[in-house]
């Protein structure tokens, strides 16, 4: 019997899951909260570690969406779900209710609000920007004029902003900011060839395929400087220039340095859009607030609610590649679950 699968979120994980479910006879309904699909991938120019064109990847994800059995609804705010006779009743803010045989949460993540780290001055000093804002400047080619006067510039990249930080309430490592910082440092060196770039880090976690190689390339081919020390505070001096303080822990001395631009590498935090859904189902969360699966190792896509599945960064920080693989795994689990449901 044909069933309805609701996917909450039309980002990379939601799109890939829908594509993977295309071969099933079931009806797939994607509920997207924005006007278009693609999620955070829309704001990426080039992806680490190979500088792949993000818009090409998004296009291919959207193209693989099966037309015969899938449907996308835009501007949908899902705020509540209830269990009802073995199904899930999905409530939208518009008042509409949808009965689903299975639901996949692919609600993604929120970016850490850098203003919470007030000592770094985001939202106070105009030349303190986030990594996401820098990526947007590459997408729209919208660099501020003062960077484009052809004079040498000094740029600081601050790692671990809002990650691994008890004060910010985030003990987790967002794990992708390290490589993003290296990628963007290289791009800045390419774009502003007279610039010098300094990355301030606590540890550099180059966990993925070709991440370490890119880190070495940044040092050897692009002369990016790496300073092992967490930035304690940033203050604007004159002409919008910024004084950054850190300890160069390898030389053991406190240091200060003046920069033209400071880029804060903000991490991933649990999506607020998933919070009310999780609450309505009493869905457990992990220590950092991401949605918790039944078992991190062997059932990472299943939840304690029958028929409710997780894919992508709603359950932990993941790269695009990992999110896509995760979405396929979740799709397979959904097909298995619906077969079981039919047999009962």
């Amino acid at each position: 019997m044909n069933k309805t699968i609701v996917i909450v979120g039309g980002g990379p994980a939601g799109l890939e899951a829908a594509a993977a479910l295309g071969s099933s006879p079931h009806h797939v309904l994607i509920l997207e909260k924005e006007h278009n699909t693609g999620g955070k991938l829309k704001n990426w120019h080039h992806l680490f570690p190979n500088f792949a064109d993000a818009s090409e990847i998004l296009k291919s994800l959207e193209k693989s969406l099966p037309l015969n059995n899938s449907e996308i609804k835009y501007d949908c705010d899902v705020f509540k779900m209830e269990q009802m006779d073995g199904n899930l009743l999905v409530s939208l803010k518009s008042g509409e209710k949808i009965k689903a045989d299975a639901v996949l949460l692919a609600t993604g993540f929120d970016l850490f609000d850098a203003y919470k780290k007030e000592e770094y001055g985001h939202g106070i000093y105009k030349n303190v920007i986030t990594s996401s804002e820098l990526e947007g400047m590459f997408v729209n080619n919208s660099f501020p004029d003062q960077l484009k006067d052809g004079l040498p510039k000094k740029i600081a990249m601050v790692h671990c902003v809002g990650s691994r930080d008890k004060k910010a309430g985030n003990m987790h490592c967002s794990k992708l900011c390290c490589i993003t910082g290296v990628k963007q440092a290289i791009e800045l060196r390419k774009y502003l060839s007279k610039s010098s770039v300094y990355n301030f880090y606590m540890d550099l976690r180059m966990y993925g395929q070709h991440f370490e190689e890119l880190y070495q390339e940044a040092q050897e081919d692009y002369g990016v400087n790496f300073i092992r020390g967490r930035v304690s505070e940033i203050a604007e001096i004159s002409d919008g220039k910024l004084q950054v303080k850190a300890e160069d822990t390898l030389s053991g001395r406190p240091m200060k340095m003046i920069f033209d631009l400071v880029v804060l590498l903000i991490g991933m935090t649990p999506a607020t859009s998933a919070a009310s859904i999780a609450q309505s189902l009493a869905l457990p969360k992990s220590g950092s607030g991401f949605l918790a699966p039944v078992h991190q190792h062997i059932s990472a896509n299943e939840t304690c609610i029958p028929g409710l599945f997780l894919a992508g960064t709603c359950r932990e920080p993941l790269s695009l590649q990992e999110s896509i693989t995760d979405a396929r795994a979740a799709a397979l689990k959904i097909i298995e679950w619906l077969k079981l449901k039919d047999n009962h």
Partner: peptide
């Protein structure tokens, strides 16, 4: 402590002598 050095960076005493809370 993970030895990040933010204490020593902000430390007023450390600006004037070789004091370092991290160390």
């Amino acid at each position: 402590c993970i030895g990040c050095g933010s204490c020593s960076a902000t430390c007023t005493a450390a600006q004037f002598n070789n004091f370092s809370p991290r160390r």
